[in-house]
């Protein structure tokens, strides 16, 4: 976990992507690019949106910072507090529950020694519960970054945890790349 590192501006490459995205919307409607830009910003800021990062996004879109804050706080994919390197999101809605999601969540809690919403001491993992991920036929389902892991069992969960530990998994990568 890293807090409040000073944000530098996006790289040239990222700014090119940002401009391509802004150009998808009509002149005067650049604000439409806000959600895509916040996804990118979060990935470039260790998986969360700091006030500084949101101010920077506001400056890119030439809108007020408050317009960014009110949007960022509405959508559940945006983290407004620091998170671990690897955020594990466990679906807990009906269809996944019917197929054992509670066991999976309890298993991650026990293995990581944390509750949903918490981050491990070493800053490597954050556990989150989420609502329906639209993969109900293959429940229990978890999401890590862009990856879906479906038909989860406790064995599979262990394998994944081992793998993520080994490779120092970082779940917040630029989703466009």
């Amino acid at each position: 976990m890293q807090d409040n590192i000073k944000i530098s501006e996006f790289s040239r490459e990222t700014l090119d992507l940002v401009n391509r995205i802004i150009n998808r919307y009509p002149k005067g409607r650049e604000k439409s690019a806000l959600l895509p830009l916040l996804h990118i910003a979060q990935s470039e800021n260790n998986g969360w949106l700091s006030p500084e990062m949101m101010d920077y996004v506001a400056s890119l879109l030439k809108i007020e910072s408050i317009e960014v804050y009110e949007v960022a706080s509405f959508y559940s994919m945006f983290n407004l507090k620091p998170v671990g390197n690897c955020v594990i999101e466990v679906c807990q809605t009906g269809p996944c529950w019917l197929r054992g999601a509670e066991n999976i969540l309890a298993h991650f809690e026990a293995k990581l020694g944390i509750k949903p919403g918490e981050t491990t001491q070493d800053g490597k993992f954050t556990l989150k519960t989420v609502e329906c991920l639209a993969a109900c036929g293959n429940g229990p389902v978890i999401q890590v970054g862009k990856e879906y892991h479906e038909n989860l069992t406790t064995n599979k969960a262990d394998e994944l945890l081992e793998k993520w530990k080994r490779e120092n998994k970082i779940s917040h990568t630029n989703p466009y790349l």
Binding site: R24, S32, L35, P36, H39, Y75, M77, V130, E131
Partner: peptide, 12 residues
Amino acid sequence: LDLYCHPGAGAY
């Protein structure tokens, strides 16, 4: 015609 994708961010 121009066609683009636009991502949401977690909101039913």
